[in-house]
């Protein structure tokens, strides 16, 4: 018979990848369910982590439940690898799972991101984990979660369409910024997390698996590979990505990648590509270094790689 002391602490440290096996198993099961029902929000228990709630604990739990010793992990926030929050999360994953980390989107097997999808097309061997503050696309029209679940169950999304209609009447355009609601696999409407509209098309028929996880709200959902993702749009009022034509990256001279805007003292603005891993590689190549840069979702003229998706 084991003693209490043996039971209590077989290993004074933490479990591999921090979460205990019970938690990891639960989350993996929920993830499988999420993959089986694209866009459907699967509730999960959501453990407290030593990171503040609302700071990526949802994404982090998914990453920790999936990561293995052979993985290479990339963590970005607003597209940047070196933002303090991304650095903090990357440090935690590396410390708890002993994995290699990278800033190169192509090298990573597991990418955890807040608010962005990299510019290079992700591949079948990759999993993208998006941090989600609010998983409920119906929140703006139905704040009661129990009622919203009923609307999802009945695919009753009239209120969201009405919201678009009202915006068109009032502003003559759809005024949704980031977190643009999308229909997944022709069934569930999901929030793609607060990625810019620029990134929404990247989810459509993507080669990679996308997992979206909200730790505070305790929901995980998924876009499996090669699944239809379509933004809500009226047949005669096409969905529009952010208009950044004429914006040129101050580091690379490139256009037609998603840019951050940098106000300058005394007025005026500079721009830089928000995907810092990509910028790093473009700069390295310009210095004749040996780097491989993958095909991007948008070409140098701003055309999306799937013809006809953006009208």
């Amino acid at each position: 018979m084991p003693t209490i002391a043996e039971l209590a602490s077989p290993n004074p440290g933490y479990s591999y990848a921090f979460l205990d096996e019970f938690a990891k198993r639960e989350l993996r099961r929920r993830i499988l369910k999420a993959i089986a029902i694209p866009g459907y929000q699967v509730p999960y228990a959501s453990r407290e982590l030593p990171i503040a709630r609302g700071w990526g604990t949802g994404g982090l739990q998914v990453t920790l439940s999936l990561v293995g010793p052979d993985d290479v992990v990339k963590v970005i926030d607003q597209g940047a690898d070196d933002s303090v929050n991304a650095a903090n999360l990357r440090r935690f994953v590396a410390r708890m799972a002993g994995v290699a980390t990278t800033t190169d989107a192509l090298n990573a097997t597991l990418i955890q991101s807040r608010h962005r999808i990299p510019e290079e097309r992700l591949q079948e061997y990759q999993t993208l984990v998006l941090q989600v503050p609010d998983p409920e696309p119906l929140r703006s029209v139905e704040h009661d979660i129990s009622k919203a679940r009923l609307l999802h169950a009945e695919a009753d999304y009239g209120l969201l369409w009405l919201r678009l209609y009202e915006q068109l009447v009032r502003y003559r355009r759809v005024t949704l910024g980031a977190s643009y609601p999308c229909v997944v696999n022709g069934r569930y409407v999901m929030s793609p997390s607060p990625i810019p509209r620029w990134d929404v098309p990247k989810l459509h028929r993507a080669a990679h698996l996308t997992l979206l996880s909200a730790g505070r709200e305790k929901r995980v959902y998924a876009v499996p590979p090669y699944t239809d993702v379509r933004p809500l749009e009226f047949a005669d009022v096409p969905f529009r990505v952010e208009d950044q034509r004429g914006w040129t990256c101050r580091h690379t001279g490139l256009q037609h990648k998603f840019m951050s805007e940098l106000p300058q003292p005394g007025g005026g603005t500079l721009y830089e590509i928000s995907d810092t891993g990509f910028v790093e590689k473009v700069i390295a190549r310009s210095r004749a270094a040996e780097v491989s840069i993958g095909a991007t979702y948008y070409d140098d003229a701003g055309r999306f790689y799937i013809d006809g998706y953006l009208r």
Binding site: W161, Y165, E166
Partner: peptide, 19 residues
């Protein structure tokens, strides 16, 4: 919602997706 939106909602529910 606008008055017209109140009517549009019905058509939306009926599946109309043309503004």
């Amino acid at each position: 919602n606008t008055s017209s939106g109140n009517i549009a909602e019905r058509l939306i529910t009926a599946g109309e997706r043309n503004y």
